[in-house]
Structure formats: structure tokens, C-alpha cells
Design a protein around this nucleic acid. Structure first.
Length: 932
RNA sequence: GCAGGGGUCGCCAAGCCUGGUCAACGGCGCUGGCCUUAGGAGCCAGUCCCUUAGUGGGUUCGUGGGUUCAAAUCCCACCCCCUGCACCA
């Protein structure tokens, strides 16, 4: 049986969490993973942060609640099931690769959820995730009590005025008739609708040409309009106004919810050289043809601002060449350092562009000028006092407001790049009319969240400011969807609550999931669960008698549930551990919702965040071959190895973590080594009464390690904890073994081994359990022990001497290297007393100034007769290590005690002397060394 | 573009907040020695450059400046990389 199989047998106990008022509670959780496949080692990395602190806190005597649900809300599972139904080969292949049989069953989304939630639970159990599994659950309508819980939450938010209905632009497939997420697209990933402006130019009263622009500020500098004379324009009647724009433009307006009627067509030609009025300043400008006007984009009507737009200036050159547009004069709007009044003119001339047909150059110039003017340009006086001097970037919103107030501007969305649906239909922008929002923009709400953040604990601390930023940044959230799995929004049951929005306060659900997820056992009819129930449990509202009667749940049970919630959720949960990708959405939303529903008293106490997970320095991906599910990883590396690698992959924090799979082997070897040492030495050392230098030192080192490891665990710094609780402590044990030269002090060694076992148990619980029971033959579980506590003593002679000894050994090795012989005899020559006197004097002198030190030495008895030597030594002694407690006497005494050790290290005889021909080389606490 | 994070001795990676004890923890890899029939494992030592019967010197922590007696660590500028930007869980 391999070592791994041996320790794997040590199945750990079941971790049930029950309220216990004699113990302090500790509630830690990890976001429920989305279960459209097996969990992978990225999930594991974060999950183990939770498991490790849970285990640590148990050792610290806390009553720990760790529970785990699974997430099925949203589209991926529903869409995947749909694709299986359609027989899509890719999707079927994916399932096959996962080793799944009975593909047929996966036509049903429900089966996906059942199958993978079960698998996820198995995997977490296998890896030793110490959750109370009675509290596990899945989301969506598939789980009625959870469904009722989410509905309750949204009713509360609605009642409290945090929900409203509004419009929302989305990328949309006109054929499939739904919004396109990234996964629904065959082209144009990451593209979102961009808001631009349509500016009205008056042809006749109530008849307008609708020019599209990215730069509304240039409205002030329009010299003419460009249209395409070949194109056919439409007249779209909106209210009592008639808007002239391209056919495509009209289509877009319809999709964007601007209702009207197409009443006529106009050929581009017919508009040529007509005059329109610029409504911002009353100026009349003419309409001209521009070759570059692309009818398929925008409205087919473009404002001409030749002073600031390279295209417009180039087109103006074309126009003038034809003898037209002589009346046009450039209007300067923006001052830009390094340019004159007309940046576009300058840059076009400099580039040698002669015509608007030179598309590529003009595109580049446009981009350049736009960028510069937007960020550095300042508005000139033409904009009036209110705006003058502002940067364009600062003024943009104000300008939009002014234009809207005057009724000149219409909000319009475009796609900055082409987006194509999976069905190969080009996407459009659609403004959804009946979209529900959560009002995260609410100032008062934001402030409450920010106040709370100031009092929370963050792991690591620098997250606090990140969260404060996130709260400021978060805007209103469209939380309803038409497709997928989830809970229906009670106020509009045709809509589903999307996945981030149904995950905000479910940690509270864990506290009573024990009952609701085992309803038969408690005789609860989950279909009857309603808002009154949750109001009572979570908010203490309502009349318990009536509720008991209505739901058919006994008053006692209701009280018990409520108490359980109150116990675990007292002052909120202690820690939620998550990946950093959830900071700006899920975690921040979680805080908002807690403050809104439960209030400050029951809002989260702590948040821990970790970075992205890499494997062997690369992003984990199936195509790179470094993708491991938890079950693969267990098979391949072993349970404890993969736990160790996960813990060692990184500390909590924003830095990315990295699995170093190549280290797995050495972890196995270390575990085997440790088991071997325990077997050899545990309770088998020599019973030595006195505490020798090496014993005292080892114990001091041990207490230092215990302290550090405790700190690390407490702060979820699993990497650092593992390094110390595994590698460092092993090195200590190794050194102690050598240092004590065959005379191991049993009480010391037993302590070292026992503590090492306990310290590593949160990370390697199976291994610790194996060592404890099987190798040490101890009773009980490691879990039930206490995390050791030591008094931290100040530094003393003990450590100083060990440092000294290590330096000495290093120096001896150095000499041996130089001499290139195998030494038979090593002589250590201690410096003469007067040198020690010098050392003490210099140490206490409070100065390092050579002149001062020389005059100090001149006053000493020993100075006479060795003047040169003393002065020469000052420089050397200054550079020596400063020992605070070590004295010459104890140096010699302890050296004699360590004689055997040194002799063994070098396999040579050792002599310690104060009289030797080479004693001139000896320095205080840095003896001369002679090897022969 | 905006926001956040980061660039450390072959690789991974500590340290930077709270300047000195930092040539810079630790792991991996590599080299040599011990052990072993051999390999593996284990153990020990080494792993920026130079020098040495002596325990020393030099040059390093993206680049360039600055502050300081003293900087990987503080300040400024620049270069490069990664991530998020909302309907995606």
C-alpha cells in the first residue's frame, strides 16, 4: 500500500455545526460554485482557504460553521442542456470528455444540476472540506425553500424602494430575439453598446436632419452638414416632429424604443445645398455631399467641423476644389497645447492629405486628434462662461445636459464594432423597455455600505480601499433576465432574477438550511414557506402563533430556527473568502443587500480575497493541458499533496496564485520523512533531566514557529503557514537531531513532533490524523486537540549562541574549502581578553566615529605597547555582529558543550584554546581557526 | 480610455506598508560530496562575480532621477506585463 493510500484511509469525522452558547462561533464561507461541470483546482484553492481557517479555528476552540451550497442560476446550464437536446456535437464531446455516461439525460437542465452538484459535493468531501453537509443546497426554482427565500429578499428590496423599472440598452439578436452575452456571440466578444448623440438641425420648423456624433461639443463649430447624395433618406415622424435620417437609422431608433412613423422618403440629392439652422447658435449652414459618409453606420448625416475633425477638413478641400462651399470658414472651439486654432487643418496638411478618400490616414489622424482634444483640450470662450476653460473630458456631460435641455439632442446607441450572434445574424442595439433595476446608485444606501466597510476586517487590509472604490463605482444593476434558470421576480413573474442578484445574502440561508433542506425530517411543508416565515426568522417580525398555524410548523421549531440564525449570524459572519474577480460585483452587492435587508448588526464582519489561480505559471485552460478537476488532481497527485499545493499556491491577497505541481513529489517525500522520524523518535528519546543549550534553543525556536503559524492561519495566509508549519519546522527538527548528536532529549523531541503534527493539521488533516493515530499511537483525533500556545520569551544568550555557532561552522567550512584538505584537527582560538574589552567599549560607545573611538582606546590600560594593533582593530570590530547577551565566558563554556557536535560535523578533533601563535587573527566572538 | 494589480539573484516566489540586521526567506531546478551493487530516495554542502590561510571585496532587486549617513524598501518620471469595465457566472 502506498503512503498515499495509507493516509487516504484516514477518513475524517463528520463536521456538524450546532449552536453552542458556551463557545464563540466562527462562521466562514466560500461562494457557491457554478455547477455546469466538475469543480477544478481553481475552486479548490479558494475553498481550501475557508477549510483551513475553519480547521484552525476549531483548534482554537471556536464553534465553526462551514457550509456549502451550489449555484445553478443563469444561462450556461440551461443553454448547455438545450444544445444537448439539439444534438450539438461540441457540447456532447465536452460531456464525453468529462467521462460522463448517459448523455441523453443531460437534455434536461435539471439533470445537470443534480449530477454536478452531487459530483461537486463528493469531490469536496474527498478532499476533506470540513463542511456541515446537512446545510448544503442548490439554487433556482428547483429548490423551493431557497426559491422562497430569494423571493422574500426581493420583496423586501421592493418594499424598501430599492427596485425600479427602466430602460436598458443591450446587444441583441433580432433573429433569436434575446440579448447576446459573450458566449452567445460568434464575433465581437466584449463589445457593449456605446452611447452617442443625434443632433437636430432644422430644415424647416419641426423638420430636422439628425446628425450623429461622438463629439457633441463640436456642435458649436459646425460649418456645414455632410450627407451622401446617392442615399435615400427617410422622414420619421416622432410626436409632432419630422426627423430626416437614413433607413438604418430609423430601424435603430425603433429598436431603441423611440416610436414614430415613417411617412416619406427623400433622395439625398434633393437635400443638397439646402440650408439648415444650427439650433445651438442659430447659424445657418449648408448641406453638401461627402463621399465618406457611410449610410450603413449612424444616420447618414454628419456634422462638419473642419477645425477639429480631419475628415471634415479633407472633405472641405474636396468641396472647394469643386468650387463649392466658398462661404465656409473654420470655427475654432478647443485650444490644444502645441497646436494653433485649427488642429485638424494643421495635422491634415502636415500629413499631406489632399482628399477625404485617403481613408486610412484620416482614420489615424481622427483618432489622434480626438484623443488629444478629449484629454488635454480646453473649451474656448465660444462655449460661454459656464464651460469656458474646462477640459473636454470634464465638460462632456455638461454639454450633453445643455443640448438635452434645449431639446436638440437625442440619445442614441451604436455598436462600436461588429457583433454577430451564434446563429450568424448580425446583432443590433436594443433598448429593453421592461428591465428591472436595483438602485445601487442610492446615495444613502452607498453611505451605509461605506460606513460598514470602515468597520470590517479585510484579509489583507489593503482591500478596504478597493471596496470603498467599488461601492462608489457600482451603478444601478439590471437584475432581471428572460432566459435561463433561477427564481422568478415576484413583482413580474415573467422575469428571472439573474445569478449575481440571487446570491447576495444566502449565507444567512445556511443557518437554517439544516431544517429547510431536510424538510421531511422536521415535518416542514416547503411549499408553504412564505414571506411571513422569513420575516419572522430573519427580522423577528410577525406573530409566531399565526405563522405556526399557517405553515403547519410548531412554534418550538420556529423558535429553534430563529435562534439558530441569531446564533450564527450574530454580528454577521466572520469571513467570506472569494476570488478577486468577485470584488466589484458579487462581494460589493453582498454588502449592499446585507445592509438593506438585515442592517448593520448582521452585516458581514470580514472579507478575504485571493488572486487568480495559475497552474505552473500559466492561466489554467483546457487547451494548454494544465486544467485539472479536483478528481483528476486527487488521482494524479494525492489528496494531501493537492491540499498542500493549493495552500502553498498563494496567500490571500490580490496577487495571483500559482500551483507548482512539480512540487508534489517532494511533499510526499517530506511527509514520509516526517512519519519516519516520528516512528524513530517519538517517545523513544533519552530522558534527560537538565535542559541543555540545544534543548532550550529548540524549544525557543519552536515557540517562535508556533506564534508565526498562528498569525498566518488567522490571516488566511496559507502559503506562509505551510512554509513554516511544514518546511521550517522540519528543518528545525533536522537541526535539533544533528545538534544533539545522538542524545535526543525525549521531552523536547516529543514536543517538537507533536506540535509539528498539530500545526500542519489544518492543511494536511489526513496526514496529521494518520501520524497521530497510526505512528504516534495516540488516542482521539488531532481535530480535538488545541492549537499550542507558548509564552513568547525575549531573545537571550541561547539564540545568540546558536547564531554564533552557525557562523563559526560556516567560517570553518570556508577555511576547509580554501585549504582543500580533509581536516583531522580543528583548533579554535579565542581572542585575548583585551580584545573583548575593546568590543564592549565600542558597543557601548554610542558612536562609530573612528577618531572618537581612537581617543577612547587611548585611555585604556591595554593600549600601551600595542598601539598600532588596537587602532587597526577598531575598524574590524565595528563590523562584527553585535551580541547583546553573549559573554566571553559563556562563549567558551558553551563551545565546550558543543564540542561533540562540531567534531561530528567535520569528523575531526576539536581543540579550543586561548593561546596560540595565530591568536593575533582572533576577534571577539569570531575566533581564529586553524585546520590541519 | 478609465480603474486596479504587478515587474526581485535559472524558474516559482518572500521582503516592500513599519528604510539599515538583505547578496536578499523558502520551494523547484542544477552542481559536488556522503550513502547505495546501481538508480531512486535520503543526508550534507554549494548555486551573482572576483579573491583568499583566512572569515574579504565588487555589482545587483524593470529604467532613469531624487530624498537619506543608509533604499529592493520612501518620492518623482518613464517603460513593460496582467486583470476588470456590467447582464458574464
Amino acid at each position: 500500500m502506498s503512503f498515499n493510500e495509507k493516509i487516504r484511509k484516514y477518513v475524517l469525522k463528520e463536521y456538524v455545526a450546532e449552536p453552542d452558547h458556551n463557545k464563540e462561533k466562527f462562521f466562514v464561507n466560500f461562494p457557491y460554485p457554478y455547477i455546469n461541470g466538475y469543480l477544478h483546482i481553481g475552486h479548490l484553492f479558494t475553498a481550501l482557504k475557508a477549510d483551513i481557517i475553519a480547521r484552525f479555528m476549531r483548534l482554537r476552540g471556536k464553534n465553526v460553521l462551514l457550509a456549502q451550497g451550489f449555484h445553478a442560476t443563469g444561462q450556461p446550464i440551461a443553454a448547455a442542456a438545450e444544445r444537448i437536446k439539439e444534438g450539438e456535437p461540441k457540447q456532447i464531446e465536452m460531456l464525453k470528455k468529462m467521462g460522463v455516461k448517459e448523455i441523453e439525460k443531460f437534455k434536461d437542465a435539471k439533470y445537470w444540476v443534480e449530477f454536478f452538484s452531487k459530483a461537486a459535493k463528493e469531490d469536496l468531501m474527498a478532499i476533506g472540506y470540513s463542511a456541515d453537509w446537512r446545510r448544503s443546497f442548490i439554487t433556482t426554482e428547483l429548490n423551493p425553500p431557497y426559491d422562497a427565500f430569494v423571493k422574500w429578499q426581493y420583496n423586501k428590496l421592493y418594499e424598501r424602494g430599492f427596485i425600479y423599472k427602466g430602460k436598458h440598452p443591450v446587444v441583441y439578436c433580432p433573429k433569436c430575439k434575446h440579448a447576446l452575452g459573450d458566449h452567445d456571440r460568434s464575433e465581437g466578444e466584449g463589445i457593449v453598446p456605446e452611447e452617442v448623440s443625434l443632433i437636430k438641425f432644422e430644415l424647416e420648423p419641426k423638420v430636422y436632419l439628425m446628425a450623429m456624433t461622438f463629439r457633441p461639443e463640436t456642435t458649436w463649430g459646425v460649418t456645414n452638414l455632410w450627407i451622401n447624395k446617392e442615399a435615400v433618406y427617410k422622414v420619421y415622424k416622432v410626436g409632432d416632429e419630422k426627423w430626416i435620417l437614413s433607413k438604418e437609422g430609423v430601424e435603430s431608433l425603433k429598436n431603441q424604443g423611440i416610436k414614430g412613423k415613417e411617412i416619406a422618403k427623400i433622395k439625398g440629392e434633393e437635400l443638397l445645398e439646402k440650408e439648415v439652422k444650427n439650433l445651438i447658435n442659430g447659424k445657418k449652414v449648408k448641406i453638401y455631399h461627402g463621399d465618406f459618409v457611410d449610410i450603413s453606420k449612424g444616420t447618414g448625416i454628419v456634422m462638419s467641423v473642419p477645425a477639429h475633425a480631419p475628415y471634415d477638413y479633407a472633405a472641405l478641400l474636396d468641396l472647394k476644389r469643386e468650387g463649392k462651399g466658398q462661404e465656409i470658414e473654420l470655427i475654432s472651439l478647443i485650444s490644444l497645447q502645441g497646436y494653433g486654432d485649427f488642429p485638424a487643418k494643421e495635422i491634415v496638411e502636415k500629413a499631406g492629405v489632399k482628399s477625404s478618400k485617403e481613408k486610412e490616414v484620416l482614420d489615424a489622424l481622427t483618432k489622434e486628434i480626438y484623443k488629444k482634444e478629449f484629454h488635454e483640450g480646453r473649451l474656448k470662450s465660444i462655449f460661454g462662461k459656464e464651460l469656458e476653460g474646462l477640459k473636454v473630458s470634464e465638460a462632456k456631460q455638461k454639454i450633453i445636459d445643455i443640448l438635452e435641455r434645449k431639446g436638440i439632442r437625442v440619445k442614441y446607441y451604436i455598436l462600436p464594432e461588429k457583433v454577430v450572434c451564434r446563429c450568424l445574424t448580425p446583432a443590433i442595439v436594443k433598448v429593453l423597455e421592461d428591465q428591472w433595476f436595483i438602485k445601487y446608485s442610492d446615495k444613502e444606501w452607498k453611505n451605509k455600505v461605506k460606513e460598514h466597510i470602515k468597520e470590517m476586517k479585510f484579509y489583507p487590509e489593503n482591500l478596504r480601499s478597493v471596496f470603498l472604490d467599488a461601492v462608489d463605482w457600482l451603478g444601478d444593476w439590471a437584475f432581471t433576465r428572460d432566459r435561463g434558470l433561477g427564481t422568478r421576480f415576484p413583482k413580474d413573474p415573467s422575469k428571472l432574477i439573474e445569478s449575481l442578484s440571487d446570491s447576495t445574502i444566502y449565507m444567512a440561508y445556511y443557518t437554517i438550511a439544516k431544517y429547510l433542506e431536510n424538510a421531511e425530517k422536521y415535518n416542514i411543508d416547503v411549499k408553504k414557506l412564505n414571506d411571513k416565515f422569513f420575516d419572522y426568522i430573519f427580522l423577528g417580525k410577525g406573530d409566531i402563533k399565526n405563522i405556526a398555524l399557517e405553515l403547519g410548523i410548531s412554534e418550538e421549531l420556529l423558535k429553534e430556527m430563529k435562534e439558530e440564525f441569531e446564533y450564527w449570524y450574530d454580528k454577521g459572519f466572520e469571513i467570506r473568502v472569494s476570488g478577486k474577480d468577485l470584488i466589484k460585483n458579487h462581494l460589493t452587492m453582498m454588502l449592499f443587500h446585507h445592509l438593506a435587508i438585515f442592517g448593520k448588526e448582521k452585516s458581514p464582519k470580514g472579507i478575504a480575497v485571493n488572486g487568480y489561480v495559475m497552474v505552473e505559471g500559466e492561466k489554467m485552460s483546457k487547451s494548454k493541458g494544465n486544467f485539472y478537476t479536483i478528481r483528476d488532481a486527487i488521482e494524479r497527485f494525492g489528496i494531501e499533496e493537492i491540499r498542500a499545493l493549493a495552500a502553498y499556491a498563494g496567500d490571500v491577497g490580490l496577487d495571483d496564485a500559482n500551483y507548482e505541481l512539480s512540487a508534489a513529489k517532494s511533499i510526499t517525500q517530506r511527509m514520509e520523512w516526517f512519519a519516519k522520524v516520528v516512528n524513530e523518535y517519538y517517545k523513544k528519546g533519552e530522558k534527560i533531566r537538565e535542559i541543555r543549550q540545544e534543548d532550550a534553543w529548540a524549544l525557543k525556536e519552536l515557540s517562535r514557529i508556533v506564534f508565526k503559524v498562528g498569525e498566518y492561519y488567522e490571516n488566511l495566509m496559507t502559503k506562509s503557514a505551510f512554509q513554516v508549519a511544514f518546511f521550517e519546522i522540519h528543518n528545525l527538527i533536522k537541526r535539533y537531531l544533528r545538534r544533539s548528536v545522538g542524545r535526543v532529549n525525549q521531552s523536547v523531541m516529543d514536543e517538537l513532533l507533536k506540535v509539528a503534527t498539530i500545526l500542519i493539521s489544518p492543511i494536511l488533516p489526513h496526514f496529521a490524523e494518520y501520524v497521530w493515530k497510526e505512528v504516534m499511537k495516540e488516542k482521539g483525533c488531532v481535530d480535538d486537540l488545541e492549537f499550542p500556545e507558548y509564552e513568547i520569551e525575549d531573545k537571550s544568550e541561547i539564540e545568540e549562541f546558536e547564531e554564533y555557532l552557525e557562523d563559526l561552522l560556516k567560517d570553518i567550512r570556508e577555511i576547509i574549502k580554501i585549504v582543500k584538505v580533509r581536516p583531522k584537527k580543528i583548533t579554535i582560538i579565542i581572542a585575548e581578553p583585551w580584545k573583548y574589552k575593546m568590543y564592549e567599549l565600542i558597543k557601548g560607545a554610542g558612536t562609530r566615529n573612528i577618531k572618537d573611538l581612537i581617543s577612547l582606546m587611548k585611555q585604556q590600560d591595554f593600549f600601551k605597547g600595542r598601539e598600532k594593533e588596537v587602532i587597526g582593530l577598531i575598524n574590524k570590530i565595528i563590523k562584527l555582529k553585535e551580541y547583546e547577551y553573549l559573554s566571553k565566558d559563556s562563549e567558551i563554556l558553551k563551545l565546550y558543550e558543543a564540542k561533540k557536535y562540531i567534531e561530528k560535523e567535520f569528523n575531526a578533533n576539536l581543540e579550543i584554546t586561548e593561546n596560540h601563535e595565530k591568536s593575533n587573527k582572533a576577534l571577539p566572538f569570531k575566533p581564529a581557526i586553524v585546520v590541519e
